[in-house]
Design a protein around this nucleic acid. Structure first.
Lengths: 225, 225
DNA sequence: CCTCAACTACCAGAATCCGCACGTTTCCAC
DNA sequence: GTGGAAACGTGCGGATTCTGGTAGTTGAGG
């Protein structure tokens, strides 16, 4: 497993590196944000251990870069502050996990391992199609920068459609994924929700109907900041 | 996003479920390990929230089952004990994340969301023959880059023929694979559908007739991406 | 008690499907 | 080759299914 440690405290950085090497991992070290960013863009690391409080380029920026690059690299954020809001912020930036200093070393190893095991690429936290933007963490949808108020179900439907990346999603699957197990299989509520959703999203239409199959987003779906 | 909460303390389970629902997720609840295991094996959840200390079937066992099933489902382990060894154990069992009780709710939400983002299924390959392209997921067919609108049956027939890779497919087999079990065996609808399909695909002809045997695609079939 | 998301019921219009009738091609026996 | 039968292609109209849309009801949460 290929690891990058970005940490400005040199002693700590080396200690972590030594410990992880003992666990059989290949560890590189960067002691400032700039070289960390460079190394991350050159080498395909499995996991990047990222100190959030870096001088120069901040850990948040590096995290964003890595996530946006679409690489398979996982980010484990390290921070001195262990407050809950900080954690939430870190995760919504696209970090895959979060660990507060001081931490126990076995826990660090376990989390790095857990991240390395994950094969599927990390999805950046913002979905976009055309001039439409959806932020799953903030639960905000905008079109041409204008915010659009959606109900929970409407948001859920749009999120599933965008996550599908333009593939057709049947109303059965929408029901399955947005509603819970008590949903009546014969309900027409999906259709109604799609309709109100379309009305709120406005022109030109974002959601295509594929008769007999389901719905899909018309514009190509991108993953941005 | 489809979530399962397995937690024996009913009050806590419902509190979690309510909170996650407010975030727009579709949440099912199981208050013991057995039903939890059953539900997890029936429904394709994005994330399973798993209490480790369950009466009956333990959380560890359920976690193992889910991981072994090869499903895309992610597991977030919940536990009363916050000791480091426990955390390490949980993660090495295949859980994707770990949270110690008591936890702050925003953090739970952030972690669930981070896990749910990763559950994106693999994209099936594109089928191509000559200048014809078929995307099974997006349900899109193009010729020379120009999109062609097909009905469900037409698309199904073309898909089966392309999947056959140029081999002859009898109209009986087409009927069997594209239509449902109630299809009249003496129907002429396959012939009609093949006709409209040919008309839409245009010249030069893509589908050959093998008199007495069935149909096949003329050009060699490739898989591209 | 009020508000609003969520849902059901229902209708109208459109797309799709499919049987039927008939024309055309292929194949084989002679 | 030639005649005929079987298999295949094709246009049409009705039946069916599917979808968009409206209005009103229910129920949870504040």
């Amino acid at each position: 497993m290929r690891i990058l440690v970005v940490e400005d405290e040199e002693a700590l950085a080396e200690a972590i590196a030594r410990g992880l090497r003992r666990e059989g991992m290949a560890v590189d070290v960067a002691t400032d944000g700039t070289t960390g960013s460079e190394k991350a863009s050159v080498t395909r690391y499995d996991v990047v251990l990222l100190d959030r409080d870096l001088p120069g380029v901040s850990g948040d920026d590096i995290c964003r870069d890595i996530v946006n690059s679409g690489a398979l690299t996982r980010v484990l954020m390290l921070t001195a502050s262990g407050s809950v809001t900080d954690r939430v912020d870190g995760l919504s930036l696209g970090a895959d996990d979060y660990l507060a200093k001081p931490f126990a070393f076995p826990e660090l190893v376990a989390r790095v391992r857990a991240l390395g095991r994950r094969a599927t690429p990390a999805t950046p936290p913002l979905l976009a199609a055309g001039d439409l933007r959806l932020d799953p963490a903030k639960r905000v949808v905008t079109r041409k920068g204008e915010p659009i108020e959606l109900t929970r179900k409407e948001f859920g439907v749009l999120e599933v459609l965008l996550c599908a990346g333009g593939s057709v999603v049947s109303s059965e699957e929408l029901l399955e994924r947005v509603w819970d197990e008590n949903a009546d299989p014969f309900t027409t509520t999906v259709r109604v929700t799609v309709m109100t959703l379309r009305k709120k999203l406005g022109e030109p239409g974002v959601i295509d109907t594929v008769v007999g199959s389901g719905y899909r987003v018309a514009e190509p779906v991108r993953q941005v900041e």
